[in-house]
Amino acid sequence: MVLERYISDLLYRYNCVVVPGFGGFLSQYKSAVHNTQDHSFSPPSKSLSFNKQLSSNDGLLVSYMAEVENRSYEEMLQQVMGTVEAWKRTLDQGGRLSLEHIGDLKSNKEGRILFQPSYQLNHLTSSFGLSSFVSTPIAREVMKKEIVALEEKVPLVFTPERRKETNLRSYLKYAAVILLALSTGLTGYRFYNETLSQQQIVVEQAQEKVAKSIQEATFFDTSPLELPTLNLKVVSKKPTVGIHHIVAGAFRYKANADKKIRLLKRRGFDAGYLGTNNHGLHMVTYSSYSDVDEALQNLRTIKNTQSQDAWLLSIR
């Protein structure tokens, strides 16, 4: 019997799991973390801690183990107490107690138990599938100082001597530019007039073709068309049987789900295995129904006589 596995299973649903005669493991919500040193991001999680003072048996751990193992409460309590005695001997001898997916415990010189939580498993179900990752930092370049330094080193392009130069060659350049612009404008104006005339001719020809087509389309056959007869065959679909399931629980290990099915069948239920949900947990049902009213009536009976945790899953 691996006691820490049952503790880990209960930490998914509860914030406190007490080991009788040993202490309580507590979980608290922890927001996402951004480490600015290594640029890593961690998703939201549950931070674990240990309190030696919470050693009174609240029945949660032992009842859960008895249900999974299909044994009596007293038998499972004795096994838990035997495991606790072995844990205490390990700590009293100065050894380190390592609990899988929970953390490590060690006793110091003053007799206090030091707890180092494990970060291998995230017990927060809403963060299922999320893992830590490292993002490459963005390098931002600051160019202001470099631009100022560059402007101080750029020489002036025009000197006073160059600005005073005026000769006949400069005037001839300006005159050539003006003549070129005038000749280009006259040629463009002539080309524009010729293009406009051609466009008017094309528009008139198109209008004549449209008018002729309208006259020809005036005479057409107004007799109704005979459409073929289309026969449709309607097939009624029968409702699917067994779409309303009364769920007894979801288990992390398939072996525990099989034990639950055998237990329910011995109690007279038509129990079955429904498959795994989005969290990878194996789902077990009391029974399945095609009538929703019948399913709800049996759900109320099961809640009153078997378990308040039963619920209805409808699949369409």
Results as ranks from 00 to 15, higher is better:
Leu3Val: 07
Glu4Met: 11
Val18Ala: 03
Phe25Trp: 11
Phe25Lys: 07
Leu26Ala: 12
Ser27Thr: 00
Ser31Glu: 13
Val33Cys: 02
His34Phe: 08
His34Glu: 00
Thr36Trp: 03
Asp38Leu: 03
His39Thr: 05
Ser40Asp: 01
Ser40Thr: 10
Ser42Lys: 06
Pro44Leu: 15
Lys46Gly: 00
Lys52His: 08
Gln53Trp: 04
Asp58Phe: 05
Val62Asn: 06
Val62Gly: 06
Tyr64Ala: 14
Met65Ser: 05
Val68Phe: 14
Arg71Ile: 04
Tyr73Ser: 01
Glu74Gln: 03
Glu75Trp: 14
Leu77Lys: 11
Val80Lys: 09
Thr83Glu: 05
Val84Thr: 15
Trp87Leu: 14
Thr90Asn: 13
Thr90Cys: 15
Leu91Lys: 11
Gly94Ile: 10
Asp104Asn: 13
Leu105Tyr: 02
Lys109His: 00
Gly111Thr: 04
Ile113Gln: 01
Ile113Arg: 07
Leu114Thr: 09
Leu114Gln: 10
Leu121Tyr: 08
Thr125Cys: 02
Ser126Gly: 10
Phe128Asp: 03
Gly129Ile: 14
Leu130Ile: 06
Phe133Asn: 13
Ser135Cys: 09
Thr136Gly: 11
Pro137Asp: 03
Arg140Pro: 00
Glu141Cys: 13
Glu141Ala: 06
Met143Trp: 12
Lys145Thr: 03
Glu146Pro: 07
Glu146Asn: 14
Ile147Pro: 10
Val148Glu: 07
Leu150Pro: 06
Glu152Arg: 03
Val154Asp: 10
Phe158Ser: 01
Phe158Tyr: 03
Glu161Ser: 01
Arg163Lys: 12
Leu168Trp: 07
Leu168Asp: 01
Arg169Pro: 09
Leu172Arg: 02
Leu172Ala: 13
Tyr174Arg: 00
Ala175Gly: 09
Ala175Pro: 05
Ala181Cys: 03
Leu182Asp: 08
Gly185Trp: 05
Leu186Gly: 13
Thr187Glu: 13
Gly188Trp: 06
Gly188Ile: 02
Phe191Val: 13
Asn193Pro: 05
Leu196His: 02
Gln198Val: 10
Gln200Phe: 10
Ile201Phe: 05
Ile201Arg: 09
Glu204Leu: 06
Gln205Thr: 14
Ser213Val: 02
Ile214Leu: 12
Ile214Thr: 03
Glu216Leu: 15
Ala217Ser: 07
Phe219Thr: 14
Phe220Val: 15
Thr222Gly: 04
Ser223Thr: 07
Leu225Trp: 10
Glu226Ile: 04
Glu226Ser: 09
Leu227Gly: 08
Thr229Arg: 00
Thr229Ser: 06
Asn231Lys: 05
Lys233Ala: 14
Lys233His: 05
Val235Ile: 00
Ser236Tyr: 10
His244Leu: 02
Val247Ile: 05
Ala248Trp: 11
Ala250Asp: 08
Tyr253Ile: 07
Asn256Glu: 02
Asp258Arg: 12
Asp258Phe: 04
Ile261Thr: 07
Arg262Glu: 08
Ala271Val: 03
Leu274His: 09
Leu274Gln: 04
Gly275Lys: 11
Asn277Trp: 00
Asn278Trp: 11
His279Met: 09
Gly280Arg: 05
His282Phe: 04
His282Ala: 15
Met283Ile: 15
Val284Ala: 01
Thr285Lys: 00
Ser287Lys: 14
Ser290Ile: 08
Ser290Pro: 12
Glu294Cys: 12
Glu294Asn: 05
Ala295Asn: 14
Gln297Ile: 09
Leu299Lys: 07
Thr301Lys: 15
Thr301Met: 15
Thr305Leu: 12
Ser307Glu: 05
Trp311Pro: 02
Trp311Lys: 01
Ser314Tyr: 07
Ile315Cys: 09
